[in-house]
Protein backbone atom coordinates (compact mmCIF):
# COMPACT_ATOMS: atom_id res chain seq x y z
CA UNK A 1 0.00 0.00 0.00
CA UNK A 2 1.47 3.38 -0.92
CA UNK A 3 1.76 6.29 1.48
CA UNK A 4 -1.20 8.18 0.01
CA UNK A 5 -3.57 5.28 0.57
CA UNK A 6 -2.22 4.82 4.07
CA UNK A 7 -3.00 8.48 4.86
CA UNK A 8 -6.49 8.17 3.37
CA UNK A 9 -7.11 5.06 5.44
CA UNK A 10 -5.92 6.82 8.59
CA UNK A 11 -8.23 9.73 7.80
CA UNK A 12 -11.27 7.48 7.35
CA UNK A 13 -10.41 5.57 10.52
CA UNK A 14 -10.12 8.87 12.38
CA UNK A 15 -13.49 10.15 11.13
CA UNK A 16 -15.16 6.78 11.79
CA UNK A 17 -13.85 6.63 15.34
CA UNK A 18 -14.73 10.28 15.92
CA UNK A 19 -18.27 9.73 14.66
CA UNK A 20 -18.79 6.77 16.98
CA UNK A 21 -17.30 8.69 19.90
CA UNK A 22 -19.59 11.62 19.20
CA UNK A 23 -22.68 9.40 19.09
CA UNK A 24 -21.69 7.79 22.39
CA UNK A 25 -21.09 11.19 24.00
CA UNK A 26 -24.34 12.63 22.69
CA UNK A 27 -26.23 9.65 24.10
CA UNK A 28 -24.42 10.02 27.43
CA UNK A 29 -25.09 13.77 27.53
CA UNK A 30 -28.75 13.25 26.83
CA UNK A 31 -29.08 10.62 29.55
CA UNK A 32 -27.18 12.88 31.96
CA UNK A 33 -29.61 15.76 31.55
CA UNK A 34 -32.40 13.96 33.46
CA UNK A 35 -30.61 13.59 36.82
CA UNK A 36 -29.03 17.05 36.36
CA UNK A 37 -32.41 18.59 35.72
CA UNK A 38 -33.76 16.89 38.86
CA UNK A 39 -30.82 18.17 40.86
CA UNK A 40 -31.36 21.79 39.83
CA UNK A 41 -35.10 21.90 39.41
CA UNK A 42 -37.05 23.92 41.96
CA UNK A 43 -34.03 25.47 43.68
CA UNK A 44 -34.40 29.05 44.86
CA UNK A 45 -32.12 31.91 43.68
CA UNK A 46 -29.86 31.52 46.73
CA UNK A 47 -29.87 27.72 46.74
CA UNK A 48 -28.66 27.64 43.14
CA UNK A 49 -25.77 29.94 43.95
CA UNK A 50 -24.87 28.14 47.18
CA UNK A 51 -24.74 24.96 45.15
CA UNK A 52 -22.41 26.52 42.59
CA UNK A 53 -20.15 28.67 44.75
CA UNK A 54 -20.38 27.19 48.27
CA UNK A 55 -18.61 29.22 50.98
CA UNK A 56 -17.89 32.08 48.59
CA UNK A 57 -21.60 32.68 48.24
CA UNK A 58 -22.02 32.50 52.02
CA UNK A 59 -19.52 35.35 52.21
CA UNK A 60 -21.46 37.34 49.61
CA UNK A 61 -24.69 36.89 51.58
CA UNK A 62 -22.97 38.14 54.72
CA UNK A 63 -21.52 41.13 52.92
CA UNK A 64 -24.90 41.97 51.38
CA UNK A 65 -26.44 41.81 54.84
CA UNK A 66 -23.93 44.00 56.66
CA UNK A 67 -22.44 46.32 54.08
CA UNK A 68 -24.43 49.22 52.67
CA UNK A 69 -25.09 49.49 48.95
CA UNK A 70 -22.56 51.56 46.97
CA UNK A 71 -19.84 51.12 49.58
CA UNK A 72 -16.14 51.22 48.90
CA UNK A 73 -14.66 47.96 50.11
CA UNK A 74 -11.12 46.69 50.50
CA UNK A 75 -11.11 42.94 50.04
CA UNK A 76 -8.08 41.27 51.58
CA UNK A 77 -7.68 37.74 50.37
CA UNK A 78 -5.57 35.38 48.32
CA UNK A 79 -8.75 33.94 46.87
CA UNK A 80 -9.27 35.64 43.50
CA UNK A 81 -12.47 33.74 42.80
CA UNK A 82 -14.09 34.99 46.02
CA UNK A 83 -13.10 38.56 45.13
CA UNK A 84 -14.40 38.54 41.56
CA UNK A 85 -17.62 36.81 42.60
CA UNK A 86 -18.21 39.31 45.42
CA UNK A 87 -17.47 42.20 43.08
CA UNK A 88 -20.00 40.83 40.60
CA UNK A 89 -22.78 40.27 43.13
CA UNK A 90 -22.16 43.40 45.20
CA UNK A 91 -22.13 45.94 42.38
CA UNK A 92 -22.68 48.99 42.65
CA UNK A 93 -20.33 48.64 45.61
CA UNK A 94 -16.77 49.27 44.54
CA UNK A 95 -14.21 46.68 45.59
CA UNK A 96 -10.45 46.74 45.70
CA UNK A 97 -8.53 43.46 45.74
CA UNK A 98 -5.57 43.39 48.13
CA UNK A 99 -3.63 40.17 48.49
CA UNK A 100 -1.87 41.09 51.72
CA UNK A 101 -2.59 43.64 54.47
CA UNK A 102 0.97 44.90 53.98
CA UNK A 103 -0.14 46.30 50.60
CA UNK A 104 -2.55 48.63 52.41
CA UNK A 105 0.40 50.88 53.14
CA UNK A 106 0.68 51.71 49.43
CA UNK A 107 -3.00 52.46 48.90
CA UNK A 108 -4.82 55.72 49.31
CA UNK A 109 -7.50 54.31 51.59
CA UNK A 110 -9.48 57.48 52.22
CA UNK A 111 -12.58 56.60 50.20
CA UNK A 112 -12.87 53.03 51.49
CA UNK A 113 -15.36 52.46 54.29
CA UNK A 114 -15.12 48.71 54.75
CA UNK A 115 -12.47 46.07 54.98
CA UNK A 116 -13.20 42.43 54.39
CA UNK A 117 -10.67 39.76 55.16
CA UNK A 118 -11.46 36.35 53.73
CA UNK A 119 -11.10 33.62 54.85
CA UNK A 120 -8.43 34.50 57.44
CA UNK A 121 -5.17 34.68 55.59
CA UNK A 122 -3.16 37.08 57.70
CA UNK A 123 -4.11 38.63 60.96
CA UNK A 124 -5.19 42.24 60.56
CA UNK A 125 -4.35 43.02 64.17
CA UNK A 126 -1.13 44.96 63.60
CA UNK A 127 -2.91 47.21 61.13
CA UNK A 128 -6.36 47.36 62.65
CA UNK A 129 -5.67 50.06 65.16
CA UNK A 130 -4.71 52.57 62.51
CA UNK A 131 -7.35 51.45 60.05
CA UNK A 132 -10.34 51.49 62.36
CA UNK A 133 -9.68 55.12 63.00
CA UNK A 134 -10.11 55.76 59.31
CA UNK A 135 -13.06 53.51 58.62
CA UNK A 136 -16.52 53.64 60.04
CA UNK A 137 -16.90 49.88 60.07
CA UNK A 138 -14.49 47.05 59.44
CA UNK A 139 -15.51 43.47 58.96
CA UNK A 140 -13.43 40.46 59.52
CA UNK A 141 -14.67 37.11 58.37
CA UNK A 142 -13.12 33.98 59.71
CA UNK A 143 -13.65 30.47 58.48
CA UNK A 144 -13.78 27.95 61.27
CA UNK A 145 -14.33 24.57 59.75
CA UNK A 146 -17.59 24.80 57.88
CA UNK A 147 -19.14 27.45 60.08
CA UNK A 148 -18.54 31.14 59.56
CA UNK A 149 -18.20 33.76 62.19
CA UNK A 150 -18.42 37.45 61.63
CA UNK A 151 -16.59 39.89 63.83
CA UNK A 152 -17.97 43.38 63.68
CA UNK A 153 -15.73 46.20 64.79
CA UNK A 154 -17.16 49.61 65.43
CA UNK A 155 -15.25 52.81 65.59
Amino acid sequence: MNLKKYIYLCFFACIGLWFLLSIARTAFDFVRIIPEEKEWHGLSYDQERFKLFGNDYALIKLMKKYIANKSYIIFISKDGEAFYLSRYYLYPSNMLFVQSPIDLRNINTKKYSTIVEYPNIVSLKPYLGALVNNYSIAYRLQAKGNSKEILRLKK
Binding site: T26, D29, F30, W40, R49, L52, Y84, R87, Y88
Partner: peptide, 26 residues
Protein backbone atom coordinates in the same frame (compact mmCIF):
# COMPACT_ATOMS: atom_id res chain seq x y z
CA UNK B 1 -30.88 16.25 20.14
CA UNK B 2 -27.65 18.18 20.70
CA UNK B 3 -29.33 21.53 20.12
CA UNK B 4 -32.08 20.62 22.60
CA UNK B 5 -29.62 19.29 25.16
CA UNK B 6 -27.37 22.35 25.09
CA UNK B 7 -30.43 24.62 25.16
CA UNK B 8 -31.72 22.87 28.28
CA UNK B 9 -28.30 23.05 29.89
CA UNK B 10 -28.08 26.79 29.24
CA UNK B 11 -31.16 27.53 31.35
CA UNK B 12 -30.48 24.93 34.02
CA UNK B 13 -28.15 26.93 36.25
CA UNK B 14 -27.02 30.53 36.71
CA UNK B 15 -23.83 31.98 35.25
CA UNK B 16 -20.96 29.90 36.56
CA UNK B 17 -18.02 30.69 34.25
CA UNK B 18 -15.22 32.72 35.86
CA UNK B 19 -14.76 35.08 32.91
CA UNK B 20 -18.53 35.49 32.74
CA UNK B 21 -18.82 37.10 36.17
CA UNK B 22 -15.33 38.62 36.20
CA UNK B 23 -15.71 40.36 32.85
CA UNK B 24 -18.44 39.78 30.27
CA UNK B 25 -21.69 39.75 32.21
CA UNK B 26 -20.18 41.92 34.92
Amino acid sequence: LLLCYVGLESILRPLSAWDGWATWLF
